[in-house]
C-alpha cells in the first residue's frame, strides 16, 4: 500500500552510502591496525557495521512491504526483547503462568490494537489492564515471596519491551492532515534520528570523550559524546524536516526530544543491566549485545514522539 516514496528512497540511499563508507573504512582499518587493542576495537567496529547492514535491510524491507509487515516485525522485536529482559531478571517458578500470558497473550493483543488501530486501547491496555492482571495472576500461585518485586519486574518488562516499542508502528496509523500515505517516513525519521544519535554519541565519545556523565551506570558515556551526539543528531533531524509533517524548527525540536529521551532510555536500561549484573542483554546480534541494547533509545522516544504528534498534528 505504501510502496517506495521519495522520502524513503532518499533516506535509504543516504544510509546505503553511509554504510558503504563505514564498510570501506572498516576494511582499511582491519588491514592497517597493528596493536592488539587496535585490532579488538576495529573488529568490534566491523561487527557493529555488519549488524547495521542486517538491521537496515530488515527495517527497509518491512517499511516498503507495508504497515502490516512493519507491525509484525516490531511485534517480533518486542517478543525477542521481552525474552532477553525476562531471562536476565530473576523470576520465580510461581511466575510461570504469568510469564506465559505475557509472551503469548499480551504481546499479540497489544500489536493487534496497534494494527486495528484502536488508539484508546493501545494507550491503556498495558498500563491499566495488564498491570492489574499481572498483579492478580501473581497472587493466584499463592507464593508471596518477593511479591512486589516479581510483579514489578514483569510489569516493567512489558512496559519497556512491548508498550514502548509498539508506539513505533503505531505512528503508521496516525491520520495527519496533508501527510496521508507518508507515515512510514515518520517511522524512518524516528528510527534514523534515534539510532544516528547513538552512533554520533559513540563516535564523539571515542574522539573527544573525557568527562564521564554516569560513571556508575554507563562508564562509556561522556559529556563530550552526549553533547556532540545530541547536537549532530538534532541537526540531522532538522535537515530531514522534508520527510516529516513538521517545519524545520519543529523537526529540530522533535529530534532534540527523540535524542534526549533516547539518551535517558539508554541510562535507564544501563541501570537495569547493572542491577542484574550484566553488560549486555544478550548476544543475539553480533557486536551489539542484545536486541534490547539496540532499541533502548527507541523505547523511550517512541511514545513521546507518538503523543506529541497525536496531540499537535491530528484533528
Amino acid at each position: 500500500m505504501m510502496g517506495i516514496s521519495v522520502g524513503i528512497a532518499a533516506v535509504g540511499g543516504g544510509i546505503l552510502v553511509i554504510l558503504l563508507i563505514a564498510s570501506i573504512i572498516g576494511a582499511i582499518l582491519a588491514r592497517t591496525a597493528r596493536s592488539e587493542r587496535g585490532r579488538a576495537t576495529v573488529a568490534n567496529l566491523n561487527a557493529r557495521v555488519r549488524a547495521w547492514w542486517l538491521m537496515c535491510i530488515v527495517v527497509f524491507a518491512a517499511v516498503i512491504a507495508g504497515p502490516t509487515t512493519t507491525t509484525i516485525l516490531f511485534a517480533l522485536l518486542s517478543f525477542l526483547a521481552l525474552r532477553e529482559f525476562i531471562t536476565l531478571t530473576p523470576t520465580r517458578r510461581s511466575d510461570h503462568h504469568t510469564l506465559f500470558w505475557a509472551f503469548f497473550v499480551v504481546v499479540p493483543l497489544q500489536y493487534w490494537f496497534v494494527a486495528m488501530p484502536w488508539f484508546g486501547m493501545l494507550s491503556i491496555f498495558i498500563p491499566v489492564w495488564v498491570f492489574l492482571f499481572v498483579s492478580i495472576r501473581g497472587t493466584l500461585s499463592g507464593d508471596h515471596r518477593d511479591y512486589l518485586e516479581r510483579t514489578a519486574k514483569i510489569q516493567w518488562g512489558l512496559m519497556i519491551c512491548v508498550y514502548c516499542v509498539s508506539h513505533i508502528p503505531a505512528l503508521l496509523s496516525l491520520e495527519i492532515p496533508g501527510y496521508a500515505g507518508r507515515n512510514a517516513e515518520l517511522v524512518l525519521f524516528l528510527v534514523a534520528v534515534a539510532q544516528l544519535s547513538d552512533v554520533f554519541q559513540y563516535v564523539w565519545g571515542k574522539l573527544l570523550g573525557r568527562r564521564k556523565i554516569a560513571p556508575h551506570l554507563s562508564p562509556n558515556k561522556t559529556w563530550e559524546g552526549f553533547i556532540g551526539g545530541v547536537a549532530t543528531a538534532t541537526g540531522v533531524g532538522a535537515a530531514l524536516w522534508w520527510m516529516t509533517p513538521f517545519t524545520p524548527t519543529v523537526a529540530a525540536g522533535m529530534a532534540l526530544g527523540i535524542t534526549l529521551m533516547g539518551f535517558a532510555g539508554g541510562i535507564v536500561m544501563s541501570a537495569i543491566k547493572r542491577d542484574a549484573g550484566v553488560k549486555d542483554f544478550g548476544a543475539t546480534i553480533a557486536g551489539h549485545g542484545g536486541i534490547l541494547d539496540r532499541i533502548d533509545s527507541l523505547c523511550f522516544s517512541a511514545p513521546v514522539l507518538f503523543h506529541l504528534v497525536r496531540f499537535y498534528y491530528t484533528p
Binding site: 525474552r83 525476562i86 531471562t87 523470576t91 510461570h96 503462568h97 510469564l99 509472551f103
Partner: peptide
Amino acid sequence: ENLNRILPKGEILLVPLL
C-alpha cells in the same frame, strides 16, 4: 541454566527464555 524457567516440572506451557 534457565531450563527450569522455560519448562519447569509439572508444567506443559513453555515460556521462551534464553
